[in-house]
Write a protein that binds this DNA or RNA. Structure first.
Lengths: 192, 192
DNA sequence: TTGACAAATGACTGAGCACTCACACTCTAT
DNA sequence: ATAGAGTGTGAGTGCTCAGTCATTTGTCAA
């Protein structure tokens, strides 16, 4: 609503879109961006299938919104962790890493993100959304942890991507050497 | 072929399965394990849809075979690179990293792998196949690059997972700082 | 030749799915 | 009251797709 004319409450349609996204994230996480039926999203959001398409004209529009929402959540978690670290004098980079690990523990955000990366190659709209998300995240880390070298930034994101896979595979439940070693990484927790 | 009984040529059905897998990898790479229609796989493999289901009883069976095939390819590339490095006196770990980077350049194997990781959470059969693949790969690296510390193993695989995402997002085509920095990682190329 | 078995297919089926349309209902401003 | 805009839905429509079945074709041994 660009003009300041309306002093009234938020548009209900906008609220609906919000709650639909909230409901959609775990569903897309399960089956992926293409294989998730919109009927299930509508059911989970408690609205009719027809109305879902009034709110999001196509399934792809919905998928893009879901991916963007996931990146929003990660950015949010990083910001909060960094602010907290600044307050307590902790290392902000490490705080963000830990916040990420906590965030992906519930797997919904994690899996949406992984599905979006995998689908990015085939769907330009998803690719753009994923790139935007990564760019925002990268800028945020650089801003909140100033003085981090390019080398360290690379390691930071590499570790995050490994955590993604390790979590998606449920390595914590596997009693094998590869799972133990990779789940424990990084073990050092200081510079080299 | 475990028993030495049959001195005759390979079963033709087995050959077909091979060529179907070969054709299926790029197709699953595009749309993912769930959203790829079996009709397209059959068409690409040059067989009827009906016969596809004789060769692979369900779509999930086919998907598991495709995932396994991708891990086979990676293992193969690693083995060859390590053997070559042993011959020339190069660092085998670095050789394997480079071989991986070359392998995923064509994206088919890469994308199948990423789709499988994302789908692993929801599909137990895919999860098992992915874990098996990761386990094989890990063991291979440990065997071919003996003396590698757990820390280094973690970094090795973390870098690989970052390369996956960077490649899937086509970061090489993006003129932004995040893309440049992450695509360049790791820049050091020696121990710390 | 024939019998037997494996390879292979065309033509279905039944379910699910993205998306639409005509039609309510519910506000609020006049 | 009532018009008009926005919220919301039931009932489709036409298509796609996983999986099946009856049948044909190819191969080879006796």
């Amino acid at each position: 609503m660009p003009p300041a004319v309306a002093p009234r409450t938020l548009s209900t349609a906008e609220d609906r879109r919000e709650s639909v996204l909230e409901a959609a994230v775990p569903i897309f996480a399960e089956r992926g961006l293409l294989a998730t039926p919109t009927t299930e999203v509508a059911k989970a959001a408690g609205i009719s299938h027809a109305y879902l398409f009034r709110l999001f004209p196509t399934k792809l529009d919905l998928a893009v919104a879901v991916v963007t929402r996931c990146h929003d959540r990660i950015c949010e978690a990083f910001s909060e962790a960094a602010a907290e670290a600044r307050r307590t004098g902790e290392d902000p980079r490490r705080a963000m890493g830990e916040a990420y690990f906590e965030l992906i523990a519930d797997r919904d955000v994690l899996l949406c993100q992984m599905h979006s990366f995998a689908a990015a190659a085939a769907l330009p709209e998803i690719r753009e959304a994923s790139r935007r998300g990564f760019a925002r995240l990268f800028a945020l880390v650089e801003r909140e942890a100033p003085g981090t070298s390019e080398e360290e930034l690379g390691s930071f994101f590499a570790t995050g991507m490994l955590k993604n896979v390790v979590t998606a595979l449920g390595a914590a439940d596997v009693e094998e050497r590869w799972a133990r070693v990779l789940a424990a990484h990084p073990a050092h927790e200081d510079s080299c």
